[in-house]
Design a protein around this nucleic acid. Structure first.
Length: 239
DNA sequence: TTAGAAGGTACGTTTACATCA
DNA sequence: ACTGATGTAAACGTACCTTCT
């Protein structure tokens, strides 16, 4: 505020001049009285502004008595004081709104960037899943136990049974488990109870783009890696 | 309880003035 | 030096609210 006032090129009236002007205005009976008042409009002096600002800092609204007192101190009309406070409140509000906008904008930008990185992460997870699925297909091709009820085999079971000795596949499984546990823990945890067990055995994978001709392998509940219907929806939401 | 006057505020607009290209 | 555009602050008009009688 004071910066804006610095360098003002007007010559402030003294209180006496102001009173004189006011007296003239009051005495003027012309129909253009209002215009005459406006024509004498002068910016308040630095000293007046300083005092007004200091009071505004402590109270943004003036009590009537204080307004009169201030008017007397500054040689202004009470109405001028009231109007100054009105305008000051308006400027204050406008600044505050601007500041709030900046804050919200920063938060939004941050969220948007998080969203982007999560999207990228999801993409890489899907690629890993695709690879794992292909590996499973290969295993199943060479192992007839994949069919029928035993077709329910899964990566973890294979891994635990030391059937899958492919270090690359194991690494992929580890990575996948790790990333899922990091990112989906909060979402999947609610399905990890009895309800989760049920989901494990009855899930339907309808994503034809990624589901192979074999069904997606379900994972042991302990692996924290399975696709419930809700997480499918979550994934679809991100597409 | 209701009506109306008085006083206050928010908000949008107008006006006068300063500054700058 | 002059001028038009622009920004800013003082002032105004109006609608609305609260308080008091």
């Amino acid at each position: 505020m004071s910066n804006q006032l610095d360098g003002r090129g007007y010559s402030p009236e003294t209180p006496d001049e102001r009173l004189e002007n006011f007296a003239c205005q009051q005495l003027s009976q012309s129909p253009r009285k209002k215009k005459n008042i406006a024509k004498n409009k002068r910016r308040f002096s630095d000293e007046q502004i300083r005092l007004l600002e200091s009071i505004f800092e402590s109270e943004t609204k003036l009590e009537p008595r204080k307004k009169l007192q201030l008017a007397g101190e500054l040689g202004l009309q009470p109405r001028q004081i009231a109007i100054w406070f009105q305008n000051r409140r308006a400027r204050w509000k406008s600044k505050r709104i601007e500041q709030e906008y900046k804050t919200l904008r920063a938060k939004y930008d941050n969220l948007a960037s998080c969203f982007e990185s999560l999207k990228n992460e999801r993409q890489s997870l899907l690629i890993q899943l695709q690879k794992l699925n292909e590996l499973l297909d290969e295993k199943c091709d060479g192992n007839r136990t994949c069919k029928g009820s035993e077709g329910n085999n899964n990566l973890l079971a294979s891994n635990n049974g030391n059937i899958n000795n492919d270090p690359k596949a194991q690494q992929g499984l580890y990575d996948t488990e790790f990333m899922c546990s990091q990112n989906n823990k909060s979402r999947d945890i609610e399905h990890s109870g009895d309800e989760g067990h049920e989901l494990l055995n009855h899930q339907e994978y309808t994503d034809s783009s990624l589901a192979s001709h074999n069904q997606w392998c379900s994972f042991d509940s302990g692996s924290q890696f399975y696709l419930s219907s809700s997480s499918s929806q979550w994934f679809n939401f991100w597409i």
